[in-house]
Nucleic acid binder design. Structure first.
Lengths: 219, 219, 219, 219
DNA sequence: CATGAATGAGTATTCATTCAT
DNA sequence: GATGAATGAATACTCATTCAT
């Protein structure tokens, strides 16, 4: 008997769809359990149960707990990156002030994507295996920002590479600290933080205001 | 000189010294194991063994792994804080540029105290229990810096409280990222980072250069 | 006969049977260890080993030692209750003398079900968690006996509820004490004990022989 | 130098008094901890701490936990026995009805001596080592009662030995069950229980009312 | 492919007991 | 005799992972 493509394809597709659904359910469940129970108490058995999937199936799709968490980190980072990329795309041609403000705003938006998951990932998930992902995220953000800065080369007074690192690191740290550790700052003062962080970065990017430059400007 | 007290005292002192030695050995071992095996693989049994102390003794002095790690965090933070405090004391009366540069330098020095432990503590230790300590450290650093800024009130153009938060967070993030994730930046370029970070913060602290000010300066 | 269902069913049944076998082995082993080593020395690890089951499996089915022991208690109580219920059913319509004698005999029989386990359960098992079961057993026995007594309301001179409590408690205590602490009484004298206990209870159930009654009888 | 008796005696006495105080404190603490934490959670270290005594001293006076608990059991039994003995002495010459009623009352009184300790001892303390004590207590109670019954030989229709066993066991069980498991029975009905239990035992002790005897009495 | 029963090394923790001071 | 630091065997329990069905 010949297995006609029509008999096989659908099956394959069906099981592929099923696979994707299973993987999705597992990632969803992992994130949920991570938030609910914390990293240490998140066991593969609990995750499988929460996903409505047998423990055996979990191991069919992921070699272990670390890979599972890494996948969640990756997915979360992808979501964040989408926000950042979207923002950077928007302002590709805008002047520095606008671009930086948008970057800061995007950082704040990114922290609103899934704040609880973000917190667990940031505070409890050991950077080992997932470290690569986190690093990657940071690198990618730096690259994006550097590319932007390079189009503004004449407006900035510093090396674009270093400037991107400083800018991204700074903005990330400020928004993260504000969101996670000082919610009171954000509660009624989001605008102020946005303002301060933007000014901080823009001032820095303009570069050292050499006395000569100042004078020239003044003349 | 009468020696009788010394015949009595020593006993008490002896056992006290013994206790202290045990506790010290445990903290030492915890730090060592943390660095060597990571947080997750650091078990109380392993720590006790590494300390050359029985598991029973470990529990005589610490209610569990978390407390042990918290104590290590605390001790580490104390060491770091000593560096920061020393630096701030040095420049209490120095002008803003000098003060900020010194703060940045101190942050770099602090990262040299026990870099490997610092990394494990930062990357693998769940912020729970120990979180309090980390938060405290950050608050204390902010307070110190704010106090300094308040003596320079007329030199800075921003609210001291917020400025301290921004300054400390920024400097911490930059030095941390550089030390931990971009050692290449530091390797031959430590001076540049110091320069950039200082300029970043100082520029920010000077406050918004209102057009009027600029104009006035220009006239 | 179509066998297809049987090809599917067995799988489920197989693992169900496996589960049941594991649980059975655990209960068996618990009882055995309890008898052999006593309650305090009966550890979950030892029980699992004796059951030829991994410690992990033990915890798959029972939340801990207490639950395991409680299950053994429950099973033992069920066995005893079957004896009691059987006896009470037999004599549902029989006169008081016969019924009470049968109850006492049943109590003795019940003590023969698994005397060593009974002893350990009675003497070493902390009444906590399992207490509920023991209480329940007693209540159930009282209820059964009270129901019987209520059908003989005109033969007895006391409140059925209190009478049931007194009767059951008394019979239980006498048979238990005799079996466990005074085996010499039973050895060649089982009949005497049966006789005495029955007379004790029957006399009590007849109620206070008011002087008038005696007198009237005498006249 | 001669150590005069006067120098030694006091010391000895002093330390003997001290010893007794230590032992007393330990027993007191054991009872307290037993009540508060239950048998299983009552550790020698905790007991020593509660007694204000070093763990070393505990082992100076008691070979281990079991001995400590056994001593508490013994002391408790002594207290109970004092109540029973006092009661029996009171009614040595009183008629059967009075004697038995007093015995039942004494059993209830005994249960009021230290009810919480009694409960822990009865429900949680493994009968091993302490078993001897409990058995002894029961035997002694039987002996006392038998001696009493023997002085009433002509009033009772049963073998004194067996009768004592039945009477003591019965009364003990009824009062215990009522006090521990059915406090509602006692709360407002203490008198009724006393009445019922007494009647139960007295009726039993009178022995089988052989028809002939009844008749003879009637004639 | 899915299932879930089974595994057992590993973890935190307790506690009776010893012994140097 | 008193002290209490130290001990370490033993215990309850978890969890990543395997594998027969």
């Amino acid at each position: 008997m010949v297995l006609r493509p029509t008999t096989v394809r659908p099956r394959k597709t069906a099981s592929q769809a099923r696979s994707r659904a299973t993987v999705g359910a597992l990632l969803e469940a992992t994130a949920r359990i991570l938030v609910r129970d914390g990293y240490e108490r998140a066991s593969t058995n609990r995750i499988a149960a929460a996903a409505g999937v047998s423990i055996g199936s979990l191991y069919q799709y992921f070699p272990g707990k670390e890979a599972l968490v890494a996948a969640v980190v990756e997915r979360h980072n992808r979501d964040l990156m989408a926000v950042i990329e979207g923002a950077m795309a928007e302002v590709a041609d805008a002047p520095l002030e606008v671009g930086v403000r948008r970057l800061v705003a995007a950082a704040l938006e990114a922290h609103a994507v899934d704040p609880e998951l973000h917190r667990v990932l940031a505070e409890q998930t050991p950077r080992a295996g997932a470290l690569a992902d986190v690093e990657l995220f940071h690198r990618r953000a730096c690259d994006l920002f550097r590319a932007y800065l390079e189009t503004k080369r004449d407006e900035i007074g510093v090396d674009a590479e270093l400037a991107a690192f400083v800018g991204v690191t700074t903005v990330e740290a400020l928004t993260h600290a504000a969101v996670i550790h000082r919610p009171e700052i954000l509660a009624h003062n989001r605008e102020a933080l946005l303002e301060e962080a933007s000014r901080l970065v823009i001032g820095y990017l303009r570069g050292p205001e050499a006395p000569t430059r100042r004078l020239r400007a003044a003349v």
